[in-house]
Computed example of a mutant assay.
Amino acid sequence: MSILYTNIPPLRTQNGKDNFRDKFSDYIKQADSVEIATGYVSQDALEMLDKCVADYDINHIRLIVGMYYIEGMPENIYNTLVRMNKKWRDRSVGEIDIVCTFRYHGKCYLFSCNGKPFAGVIGSANLGAISLNAQTRRQYEVSVNIEDKNNLTELQEHIRELTDKCSKVISDVPNIPLVRQENLKLKNVEHVDRINSDEIATYKRHLTGPTIEIPLKVPKDHNDPKLRGSNINVCYAKGRKREWWETEIVNSKKISGLPGYPEYKKPFMVITDDGWKFEAWTCGDNNKNFYSKDDLKIMGYWLKGRLVAAGIVKPIDHVEDDKDFKGLITEKMLKQYGKTTLSLTKTTQKTKNEHGDLLDVWVLSFLPKQLKED
């Protein structure tokens, strides 16, 4: 047994002393089975763990997450955990469990090979500590490693009891309380203003007419060649080079012909469910195009930014190099997010734009079904 420090100045790891991140890396490279029980996780660490499972041919992985069922789980963490759990179970290598009986704040790591545990780590380090980011670079953790057979057996039994008595596979846990992740991509963007929750509530008290549900036309999955270059995936269209954030929403006649649909080329102000304010309009043949008026990226920053904040997709810097369509938005991804349409509702209110023009106000929502309004 030895103490595992954290290599952060001014408490740099001295010669001959181990740190948690290096020890974790050494052990997982030797293991074919890994079991982890932790209070919290981070998205970076989850992605790193998933990569380790693939790179080091881990044939059994169990991750137990202990604090979120009672406290609430960030939606990006939830979506990442669901996606990884499905991937691991489809490959028959493991699963992700959620502690449902109490707040579990332990941090236990058990590494085995050929059916026998050979090392373990316990201490203060949540799973996020395996990944270097702005937070972990300045967060000091202390742990100890275990290689004694009796202690390893005891740790193995603890994890087994936690699994059998206190946890369920995440796919079998209904109604996990989710915490919405704030999309800050529109912060300081020209032609966009921030409004507070009281202002949002005021506009919602003045809704009028039916809500128009605008379907987001996307491919079913990454293998579906249809709609790869249209609507919210217009950046993948052939022709001129576009940024990943550019978004054009093209409606069918069935939608554009609905009573109360916005008038042709008559700008209106959009108030979003998460507190952003920008101009939009409808235009094009049959009045089918629904855009953010001043910049196509504004709608993308809002809509795609929600998916990025929720851990559904990562933005692509150079779309022309994305040959595997990793940044493509699919129906499967929208369903995981919890909403496949935009909800647009007119209000009786009016507001002035930056030029002093008086515009109608509409409320635009992309709030997932499993999340409650603030």
Score class of each variant (00 low, 15 high):
L216T: 02
K265L: 07
E190M: 12
K149H: 13
R160M: 09
I212E: 01
I214C: 05
N231V: 00
I212D: 01
K238S: 12
N145K: 13
P210G: 04
L258T: 07
E154N: 15
E213L: 15
Y203I: 01
P267F: 05
R242Y: 02
Q139C: 11
Q181M: 14
Q156H: 14
E213P: 05
T202M: 14
G209Q: 00
E213Q: 14
P210C: 02
L227A: 09
K165R: 14
K204P: 02
L162T: 04
N151E: 13
I200A: 01
N183F: 03
K220S: 11
S167M: 04
K220E: 12
Y140N: 07
A237Y: 04
P225R: 06
G209F: 03
K204T: 04
E141C: 09
K220L: 12
S143M: 06
K187A: 13
P210R: 11
L184C: 13
Y140F: 14
K266H: 10
N196S: 04
K217P: 08
P177C: 00
P177Y: 04
S230G: 11
G257M: 05
P259R: 03
Y264W: 10
I200E: 03
D172H: 15
D164T: 10
E199M: 08
V173N: 06
K226H: 14
C235G: 01
K168Q: 15
V144F: 10
V144E: 09
K185Y: 09
D148T: 05
V234R: 08
N233M: 02
I232V: 07
L207Q: 02
K266I: 11
I212H: 08
C235W: 01
V179G: 06
I176A: 07
V189I: 15
F268C: 00
D224H: 07
P219A: 05
D224E: 08
D148I: 00
L216V: 04
V189K: 15
E246Q: 13
Y203K: 05
P259D: 02
I146K: 06
K226R: 15
E263G: 13
K185W: 09
L216N: 03
K187G: 01
N196P: 03
L152Q: 02
K253E: 09
E161K: 15
S171A: 14
P267T: 03
R138I: 10
N151W: 13
N251F: 03
